[in-house]
């Protein structure tokens, strides 16, 4: 549904977006991650046809957004950053306007409005002026506007920004439900949201895609992925660490905590060995008792940091590893 090829945008000499390529099919929810100023909003604005790209192209449902904007825009529902809405209108008036400009009139319009009012829980403020709404309600009003014509493509710029935890949950549920039939792109800062909603994730940094995969795949890039945390008793920390270092599966281990009752260590595998590490540790445990042993899944926030700020991660080099993997990936694409 959404096809983005080599998309680029310069503001003066600054390359805000620099050769971004990806596609989103129906039934996919694409999470767009990246630090502030990475080019997320600019990319979304180009996809929705608000600003023209300086290079590359965007096709929505087969229509080029620059040369054939009207049919492309018909397919898109867009929630801009900060959820703007006409402050001089009532919520109902605003939704009716949005429906009318999408070509919905009469009965179809009334039905569309009442549908989104139910979906976005706008009933209590229906006749209130947008100006007097709280941030959460205004956000949902603008969100309602974006889905009023039941679009095939949804572009949502930080859809859960400014909502309380319950509303966040509702909106995520809604996005996931709609994602079954639509192509959805949404940007966020909140990493748990990616797990909750996305079928695929793109991390963008300084205008370039630095990672592209399912949340599980991204997590694999974490140096934590496959690491084992264990707590043992009956031996000193250094003795255990020595023993572990002799195993072929272990890259290195660190002692997290050493108390009278036992030692807690974290052991990192040489490469991802899918549980082989835990087994070999269990086999090596002679003369000490394992109190606790579990394999870490990898953490998205750590992946995110190592990809977008590789210089600040100094202790391991995992950041550089994943950085290298990403460059390889993006070279493949080009």
């Amino acid at each position: 549904m959404i096809n983005v090829q080599n998309l680029a945008k310069s503001f003066g000499t600054k390359r805000a977006v620099d050769g971004v390529t990806f596609t989103v099919e129906r039934g996919e929810v694409l999470g767009f991650l990246g630090p502030n100023g990475a080019g997320k909003s600019t990319t979304m604005r180009m996809i929705t046809g608000f600003i023209p790209p300086t290079g590359g192209w965007v096709k929505v449902g087969g229509f080029d957004i620059v040369s054939d904007p009207i049919p492309a825009k018909r397919l898109i529902g867009y929630l801009p950053e900060n959820a703007p809405a006409y402050t001089d209108m009532t919520v109902q008036g605003f939704l009716k306007f949005a429906a009318e400009i999408r070509g919905l009139t009469g009965q179809a319009q009334a039905k569309a409005v009442s549908r989104v009012v139910d979906l976005c829980f706008l009933e209590p403020v229906l006749h209130q002026s947008v100006e007097t709404l709280s941030k959460g309600f205004r956000h949902r009003t603008c969100f309602a506007q974006s889905i009023i014509h039941d679009p095939d493509v949804l572009v949502l710029d930080e859809p859960t920004d400014g909502l309380d935890p319950n509303q966040k949950h509702e909106v995520r549920q809604l996005i996931r439900r709609m994602g079954e039939k639509k192509a959805i792109i949404f940007s966020t800062h909140i990493l748990e949201e990616v797990d909750a909603v996305c079928s695929r994730t793109i991390i963008i940094d300084r205008g370039r895609i630095v990672a592209n995969g399912t949340p599980a795949e991204l997590r694999q890039k974490s140096e934590w992925a496959g690491a084992v945390t264990l707590r043992v008793s009956g031996a000193t920390g250094t003795a255990i660490a020595q023993k572990l270092a002799s195993l072929s599966t272990v890259k290195r281990s660190t002692i997290l905590k050493e108390e009278a009752g036992g030692v807690t260590l974290r052991v990192f595998p040489k490469s991802n060995q899918n549980g082989a590490l835990a087994r070999s540790i269990a086999e090596a445990a002679q003369g000490w008792q394992i109190e606790e042993l579990h394999t870490e899944e990898g953490r998205l926030d750590e992946v995110f940091r190592s990809i977008t700020m590789p210089d600040t991660i100094t202790n391991t080099g995992a950041g550089q590893n994943s950085r290298r993997a990403d460059t390889a990936q993006s070279e493949e694409k080009q």
């Binding site: 608000f50 009207i70 867009y78 801009p80 703007p84 809405a85 006409y86 949005a98 999408r102 603008c142």
Partner: peptide, 14 residues
């Protein structure tokens, strides 16, 4: 100022 221009110009109108 309000940012609705972005809304208006991404609607299916010229």
């Amino acid at each position: 100022r309000v940012g609705t221009l972005e809304l208006l110009l991404t609607m299916p109108i010229t």
